[in-house]
Computed example of a mutant assay.
Amino acid sequence: MDLNYTPEELAFADEVRQWVRANLPAETRDRVLHHKRLGKEEQVEWQRRLHSRGWGAPRWPKEYGGPGWNSVQQHLFDEVLSEEGAPQALPFGLSMIGPVLMAFGSQKQKDYYLPRILRQEDWWCQGFSEPGSGSDLASLRMKAELEGDEWVLNGQKTWTTLGQYANMIFLLARTDPAAKKQQGISMLLADMSTPGITVRPIITVDGEHEVNEVFFDNVRVPKDYLVGAPGMGWSYAKFLLSHERTNIARIGRSKAELTRLKKIATEETADGVPLIQTPGFREKIAAVEIELMALELTNLRMIAAERAGQAPGAEANMLKIKGSEIQQTLTELMMEAVGPYALPFNPEAREPGWHGEPIGPEYAAPLGPDYFNYRKVTIYGGSNEIQRNILAKAVLGL
């Protein structure tokens, strides 16, 4: 197993880096690197620039408009974009419903929706979780009943990320209440402007409006908005979540955040000595860096296995667990490095154009909100406790 990059792969990474530096707006890059809020416009504009270069969907095959890259190129692309301060790709269209439609959607759905995802003409959101149905997703209660040529949807979804921006949603609903829990679920699509859909914000502990609850009251969608076959939604959801969990590892993003942590630890001092030179804090940085290196090697092993034609195994669950925990550790260490300047809670300081009086260094303001926000990463996409149960069963036979 060779984990070294070839000269051709390194040249590819350099090509991506040079293009990003020439095409990423400086203001957008600054907002990402300094953890300022990004609006919908910046996200859409960056996706369209990537699409114009042919890089809008790095994991898609050529037949659907992707570049047809191998897994190494995909990994390097993600890493370079994170290093250069590019916005994180929105996963709901590109990494979730897009691959599901490729695998299970009708030809009509593929022809219509996949090009729109590439051009960012549709902003998708995910309708899986419900009050009382999170990790136990098979207990969901939302109903979809077929009346003539329409499905009638009734129920509620929650934790719908960026649903306030979305014009489309993919969701799970119970279409056969008499079937066993997993067998009675179907996957459907819906236009968010359909009468009967109500979106209400949920303001999270970091002061952000990132998630929502969505209500469906006799919402009618066309019959052909069903994805694949009725009753197969659970299988399609497992397929989708396998993509989501790998993405949650965010190795490139964590490497960029590690660099940020080291920079903060160089500027912050203890008794006149930079924190990065103090034994205690230096050891904490080294510990998380070692874990991140191990995570990246695990990911590279998955890539090497894919090169050899082998299917990934439990590594995807491991990536989700360790990747999310490393992200949390990095936020904790940045808070610790800044000390009392991280305590004032001022989410408004993340707004572009904010001109209030800063408390401490500029990089301190986002640290508290980031710390609170990243408490969620060990929960969404399947909580880490559930992932460990899966690993115990699959690897240890428990």
Rank of each mutant, 00 (worst) to 15 (best):
P7E: 11
E8W: 00
E8R: 01
F12K: 09
E15A: 09
Q18D: 12
W19N: 08
V20S: 09
L24D: 13
T28A: 14
K36Q: 14
R37F: 14
G39D: 07
K40W: 03
E45D: 15
E45C: 14
S52G: 04
P58M: 01
E63K: 07
E63C: 02
E63G: 01
P67A: 15
G68L: 02
V72R: 12
Q73V: 03
Q73C: 04
H75I: 15
G85I: 03
Q88W: 13
A89R: 14
S95I: 00
V100K: 07
V100R: 06
Q107W: 00
Y112R: 04
Y113I: 04
L118N: 03
E121S: 03
E121D: 12
E121G: 03
C125W: 02
C125Y: 02
L137K: 01
S139C: 03
M142W: 05
A144P: 00
N154L: 10
G155Y: 03
G155M: 07
Q156F: 08
T158P: 00
W159N: 10
T160L: 09
R174V: 10
K180R: 14
A190E: 04
A190G: 03
M192T: 07
M192K: 05
P195G: 04
R200K: 07
P201I: 13
H209T: 14
V211F: 02
V221W: 00
V221K: 01
L226K: 05
V227I: 08
A229E: 15
G233N: 12
K238P: 02
L240A: 08
T246G: 00
T246Y: 00
N247T: 09
N247K: 13
I248G: 15
A249E: 06
R253P: 00
E257C: 08
A265L: 04
A265T: 07
T266C: 05
G272C: 06
I276P: 15
Q277K: 10
A287S: 10
V288D: 09
M293E: 14
E296K: 13
R301L: 09
A304W: 13
A308G: 14
P312Q: 05
G313L: 03
A314L: 06
E325Q: 11
E332N: 09
L333K: 03
L343A: 09
A349K: 08
R350Q: 15
E351K: 09
W354M: 12
E357L: 10
P358H: 13
P369H: 13
D370R: 14
Y374C: 07
K376A: 05
V377W: 00
A394T: 12
L396M: 10
